[in-house]
């Protein structure tokens, strides 16, 4: 049975806080140690380089550093590290129960994600030079009597490469946050894009909610379908979600699938330097996935009414 967030948080806190905190502190020590080694090596290089004393040692130290990095990066070494164990425990003992409380019967795989092709199905026009995705959630969803589907969520990070005049490469984040998709049993026969403000192209659709227009731009070839989909209730819910969580987001309804992406930044990751079970952070993760589900269902309800 679904519990409210507060009760669930207290239960998880009592069961896991001690073990998590222990691992967090070990992870913090490990991180500080690694930073110490890295800074130490740099300092040594600089001193040897500037003074010239024992400059012949530089290549040897460099080789030692590379070997140390390779050895510590091996899969078995990573899995023994406190940081890995801390993140694993957090995702299994904290995130999994929170997610299954929102979606009964959901599966959560922290290491799985979408491929770039799966992400691009939604019609996002990101120029992707670097891509990563993890924390895949697959949740069974009952849309109405006799109609069930699955809703998928995962964290996605897309970046674009750029080079400066010196030829140095840097990466700019295009999107970092939660993306979702839900296939439905109705087909609107066209594509409607609800984007962040000032993003629409030539086929911008005007709507009758000033609050909505300030925050979103709608793009659609079929203006009538876009207006039918965006009822006053749907627009109000979108504005509420924006104002409550202060995350910008986009919704693409492409034929028989509802896609959404929310610019949350990194999600479902425990903090190493702060409280692992910070209430506000966990509540935000919980509320955002719940809001994404609620909005997708609301849009489905409208589609179900208009497509008979």
């Amino acid at each position: 049975m679904k519990q409210n967030f507060g009760d669930l948080y207290r239960k998880l806190y009592d069961e896991n806080k001690t073990e998590l905190e222990e691992l967090r502190l070990k992870s913090k020590e490990e991180t500080k140690k690694i930073l110490g080694y890295v800074l130490g090596f740099f300092a040594l290089f600089i001193i040897l380089g500037i003074t010239g004393i024992g400059a012949f040692l530089i290549p040897i130290i460099f080789i030692i550093a590379i070997v140390a990095i390779i050895k510590s990066s091996s899969a078995s070494k990573i899995k023994e590290s406190p940081t890995y164990k801390y993140k694993k425990l957090f995702k299994e003992k904290i995130m999994m129960p929170l997610i299954t409380n929102v979606f009964e019967g959901a599966t959560y795989n922290p290491d799985a994600g979408w491929t770039p092709a799966q992400y691009k199905e939604a019609g996002y026009r990101d120029w992707i030079d670097r891509y990563s995705s993890e924390d895949l959630i697959i949740a069974p969803m009952k849309l109405k009597e006799g109609v069930e589907t699955k809703m998928e969520f995962c964290e996605v990070h897309t970046e674009r490469e750029s080079r400066d005049s010196d030829g140095d490469t840097s990466y700019t984040t295009i999107f970092y946050g939660l993306a979702s998709k839900m296939k439905i049993d109705k087909n609107i026969g066209t594509e409607v894009y609800i984007k962040r403000n000032w993003s629409a192209g030539k086929s911008k659709v005007k709507l009758d909610s000033p609050e909505f227009e300030k925050k979103f731009d709608v793009e659609a070839e079929d203006q009538i379908m876009a207006v039918r989909l965006l009822t006053a209730d749907v627009m109000a819910e979108m504005v509420d979600m924006y104002e409550k969580y202060k995350y910008s987001f986009e919704i693409h309804v492409i034929r028989d699938t509802i896609y959404m992406r929310v610019y949350t930044g990194e999600v479902f990751e425990p903090n190493i330097f702060k409280d692992s079970m910070e209430y506000q952070t966990l509540e935000k993760y919980y509320n955002v996935i719940e809001a994404m589900m609620s909005l997708s269902k609301h849009i489905y309800k409208v589609i179900d009414e208009i497509i008979v």
Binding site: K206, L207, D208, Q223, I224, V227, R228, I306, I307, V308
Partner: peptide
């Protein structure tokens, strides 16, 4: 009735669009 529901929904959207353009 199903056809009518569809047309009514499209008509409602068309009226909303009309009002938006008139207001503007």
């Amino acid at each position: 009735q199903k056809l009518l529901t569809k047309v009514e929904s499209q008509l409602q959207a068309a009226r909303r669009i009309y009002n938006i353009e008139v207001t503007e």
